[in-house]
Amino acid sequence: MAPQFQRHDAKSAKDITSELVDVYARVYDVPPYIGDPFFSADTFRERLEAAFDSPGFETVTAWQDGRIIGYVHGATLPADKPWWTSLGNQRPADLVVLADAGGIFWLRELMVLPEFQSKGLGRQIHDTVIAGRAETVTALTCIVDNQPAHDAYLRWGYTIMGEIKHAPESPVYDAMYLPSR
């Protein structure tokens, strides 16, 4: 059975917060994330709930047999977002202008339950959310050491701008962007 995709704005995403956190908890229940407070389900819940208030917030969920098997969430990238501005001149000048105009989608999280990984579902969820966005460029941050995700984003056409940290306790991330579609 093929998964079904559903779009959620902030209001409808709030109704499935527990399910979203449950998926996160399963995906991040592997080394090196186990036991790291930055990757705890409670910390993720706080970040997710804070994201609901972001302009342009959206979640796309993939459902199969009545449960969420993967999802993505993101919002319009604020031009003054610290990770974004920390890149300075590493950002292409046209993207700085585009961010100032609200033209970049910030893909905040993309995850797929372990038993559904490596089957193309992540790409389907990714492409579904992007196809429905008004922004023409997508930006994200990916943990440098998360080789499967990192390699996938590069295969999908993302370009690395530079390295960032979201917080002192966070790992190092590559900031990436997917050129205009």
Rank of each mutant, 00 (worst) to 15 (best):
A2L: 14
A2W: 11
Q4L: 13
F5W: 09
H8W: 03
K11F: 08
K11E: 12
S12N: 14
T17Q: 09
L20M: 12
A25K: 07
A25I: 01
R26Q: 15
R26W: 04
R26F: 04
R26A: 13
V30Y: 07
P31W: 11
P31E: 15
P32N: 10
G35N: 11
F38Y: 15
S40V: 03
A41S: 15
D42E: 14
D42P: 00
D42C: 06
F44M: 06
F44R: 06
R47N: 07
A50H: 10
S54Y: 08
T61Y: 01
R67W: 02
I69P: 01
T76I: 08
T76K: 05
P78T: 11
K81G: 00
P82G: 13
T85M: 07
T85I: 12
S86I: 00
N89P: 00
A93Q: 12
L95Y: 03
V96F: 00
V97A: 15
V97E: 14
L98H: 05
F105M: 09
E109R: 08
M111S: 07
E115V: 09
K119I: 10
L121W: 09
G122W: 06
G122Q: 04
R123K: 14
I125V: 15
H126L: 08
A131G: 15
G132H: 11
V137G: 03
A139D: 06
A139E: 06
C142E: 02
A152V: 07
L154D: 08
Y158Q: 10
T159G: 10
I160P: 02
G162V: 03
E163V: 03
I164Q: 02
A175Y: 01
A175F: 03
L178W: 07
S180C: 13
